[in-house]
Design a protein around this nucleic acid. Structure first.
Lengths: 341, 341
DNA sequence: TCAGTTTGCGTAATCGTTTGCGCAAAGTAG
DNA sequence: CTACTTTGCGCAAACGATTACGCAAACTGA
């Protein structure tokens, strides 16, 4: 049975005939407090069922020990993994992470930032929503001197530290691989959005084609929202062309999966007739039939690095440090969907 | 350019020659404040770039407007969806949700609870970790009078409101469906853990067999952690039996997927030789080959209801209301992996 | 033994809001 | 015009912790 009344350090001070300051110091293991007193305090704390009030502490010293993480959606393996990577580091340093989802909705992203600022988080780590084209809310964060680090979905319109993978390289290597497998008419699924990752993947695609002297064919580049259903539609469009592509490189695993479905429905052999590659290394790609070639984004590593970078900024504090851009090397995961051997 | 010095309601009060109380009331739209004053306050607030400090407010009135949600892992579609469902309701009521992952780790679950209590969240919504067998940390939450609602992974050892699906029914219907498809040797993948959902699914399995007068064969019930790899191992064990099963009903989609891989590797026809069903309706189940029959858990709905139930408790406050158990009806999603037609 | 240091703790201010109470001015009723 | 209610706001005490400063007692070294 517990007392309904909240017990504070004053209560435990009173019980011990000492002051709240001493209790506070004892609980924080201050060297100026004798071991005897510390033990007594700890003991009565348990006894009274004392629960520290972080809110009060946070108010007092302006730190909440909470960092806000904003992701478009937490149910994508990639983002979930990055969050995990961030948590690993943050928890070690005794920070809590509060995860917010923007659902790729600009309004919600703005509101979330505002809420995090009101909640006085010690910093924000974010991946920008697909539809975000105005970055004032992020600028506001910076102007308040609150550490901000972006990962994966970043932008150059902000002078901010960011961590991403080399989307260009991942894309280039994938297309190169397809070419080495003998493909010559390689299609690409991309997004019309301003998010740099997709632009980079497109650039890797075109550059690889150019370097291998394969003509760029506008018809083979299909823009969509890159969900599974979009992949289906895009694939159908491709199949209507006079000349079918012999490979499809999708900037998203989901869209690649959609394409795979359509190909299988029409009994088009993968990879013999059409080789297929995705991007992100979603878990399901390893057990599609055939398993899907894709690009691993080093998600956990990215989370770790993002968090570490964040804490660097954090420690630098008001002085601030020059914002830096960390680029991770992606890994091409070759599976049967592109192996024509 | 922004002032580094934090601006408070006192600053805006000073500028207007009124007191902080008035400013506070104006910002909170208190009826006792004139419209003129309110407008002036709002205006200078913008002007000074005032940012409310929720920490101070929370300290003052003991409410943080934050509720903690604990899930084993956020990268499972089911949990991510429930979280989404919870957020929908919570955001409408102006509550923020902080998502914590226990990673099915008991220690971390306990620590997370402690951290949430310290952070003075207004309540906790949780799904219990797989390895949790002691519930004192949840009891502590309750003893502090903090609203607690469990979903999906619940326990009867706690007198607490909970929301779940009828795992028994979902399981029963699945097995019934398999029987109707002509299967007679139906295996079941389950977990050794104390989590009620798996026990219920097992009960549905055995009851369906009994009702259809199919003998229960202990050899056909395989316990594991139900990950994909476990599914592979379990399937291999089954294939070593003198008599092969003609159906596998896995309590997890991932384990079912593992089984599917093994079956395909050995050229065993699905569903002709072995029918296969999973549980949870993970997104990937719709695009496996063949698509996997599974049970949908009404995840968004579950999130909505959980949150609503939570807020009921919340409003009831100290008085408390009788804890209630809400059971949702699951939906059997029949796909090709079990359709022998 | 005495000045100087260390140890151990108390005093009181502070973080930024909220809110019960009070009070004058303005409005309303009779 | 009196008495009462409303309107609009100020005063000051919270909320629960932290911390700069101070001060005695104990300890240290020469």
């Amino acid at each position: 049975m517990s007392t309904k009344t909240k017990v504070t350090i004053h209560d435990i001070a009173e019980k011990l005939n000492i002051t709240a300051s001493t209790v506070s110091r004892a609980l924080n293991d201050n060297p100026r407090i004798s071991d005897a007193t510390k033990k007594a305090v700890l003991k009565t704390a348990k006894q009274l069922n004392y629960q520290p009030n972080n809110i009060a502490a946070a108010l007092r010293h302006g730190k909440s020990y909470i960092i806000g993480v904003i992701v478009p959606t937490a149910d994508r393996f990639f983002f979930a993994s990055v969050v995990r990577g961030i948590e690993e580091i943050a928890n070690n340093l005794n920070y809590k992470v509060i995860i917010c989802q923007s659902y790729d909705n600009y309004e919600k992203e703005v509101q979330t930032i505002e809420a995090l600022l009101n909640a006085r988080v010690d910093g924000i780590i974010a991946s920008i929503g697909k539809n975000t084209e105005n970055f004032d809310h992020f600028k506001k964060v910076q102007s308040k001197g609150i550490p901000l680090v972006l990962f994966d979905r970043t932008t150059d319109e902000l002078e901010v530290s960011q961590v991403m993978i080399d989307d260009y390289l991942g894309s280039y290597k994938t297309v190169e691989h397809l070419i080495q497998q003998g493909c010559r008419r390689i299609a690409h699924f991309t997004s019309p959005k301003k998010v740099s990752v997709f632009k980079e993947r497109l650039r890797g695609y075109t550059d690889a084609l150019r370097d291998y002297e394969i003509p760029y064919d506008e018809q083979l580049v299909i823009k969509s929202d890159l969900q599974l259903e979009d992949g289906r539609e895009s694939m159908k469009k491709l199949l209507k062309l006079k000349q079918m592509p012999d490979a499809v490189f999708s900037a998203s695993d989901y869209a690649a999966m959609g394409a795979m479905q359509v190909l299988k429905e029409r009994d088009i052999q993968i990879p013999e007739q059409v080789a297929l590659a995705g991007f992100s290394n979603e878990p399901f790609t390893s057990f599609t039939d055939p398993p899907l070639t894709t690009v691993d984004q080093r998600s956990i590593k990215m989370g770790n690095i993002t968090a570490e970078l964040f804490f660097e900024h954090f420690k630098a504090g008001e002085k601030g440090i020059v914002s830096q851009k960390t680029v991770l090397k992606p890994e091409l995961i070759v599976r049967k969907s592109t192996l024509r051997k």
